[in-house]
Amino acid sequence: MKNKLLIAVAAVAALASTVANAKTIQIGLDGLVCAFCAQGVEKKMKAQGATDKVFVSLDKKVAVVSLKDGKDIPDATIKAEITDAGYVVTSIKRSDEAFDALTKKIKGSK
């Protein structure tokens, strides 16, 4: 019983660690059609304290947020900010992939 509890705690800790250590957030978006849209999303996400850099692709309908070390932005905050900007969040995905590598991959996949 004690071992099972330890395993569970370790699993939760590992999961929490993964989330806390996420370097980037990839946000799927509906309604992005022009540079003004992208600009608005970019500035909304840049206004978050946990944000380091933001990349928006109209082509892939996605925004990528680079997080500051040890920081995160809750899903609820992301959805609220994007909704406030006038757009719809279709997906939120956290990743350990570096911002530059991820954005390069997105640009290259056109």
Binding site: F36, C37, Q39, G40, K43, K44, A47, D84, A85, G86
Partner: peptide, 11 residues
């Protein structure tokens, strides 16, 4: 305010 386009709050 932080500058935003018209499509957004604070634009």
């Amino acid at each position: 305010a932080d500058a935003k386009p018209i499509s957004f709050a604070d634009g």
